[in-house]
Amino acid sequence: MCGLCGVVGAEDHWTDAAATSRIVGGAGAGRTRRQERLRRVAIGNKILAHYGLKLSDWQGSAYILRNRTGRQEIVPHLAALWPAAEALAGRPCDPLDPDVIAAMSQSG
């Protein structure tokens, strides 16, 4: 737990392996852990925009998810992001939804 803010440290999540050069990308991809997090936020926001949500990095240790009415939630990693996103958006976030696929293909 962080003594200053009282946030319990999150468990390692499998997607964080990207930050470990020996596992994925790493040296080849030339990204540091911080850059990887910012990139995750940038890509995540393209999807979350579809639900009226916005993600930002918080101190390199968690993420803040906000909706348009200003409600916000701190999430430790990607697995925790989606239940929070569904709660803030008030609807399911389904990557297999044809509308979502069409929107993602266009913005790509």
């Binding site: 499998w14 997607t15 990207a18 994925v24 990308g25 991809a29 990887e36 990139r39 995750r40 890509i43 995540g44 999807i47 990607l78 697995a79 992001l81 989606w82 239940p83 569904e86 399911p92 976030c93 389904d94 990557p95 297999l96």
Partner: peptide, 17 residues
Amino acid sequence: LDWTAFGIWLTMLLNRH
């Protein structure tokens, strides 16, 4: 595949399905 996008995709898929 882009590892970052793949992680976002799979976590979103597994959350819903």
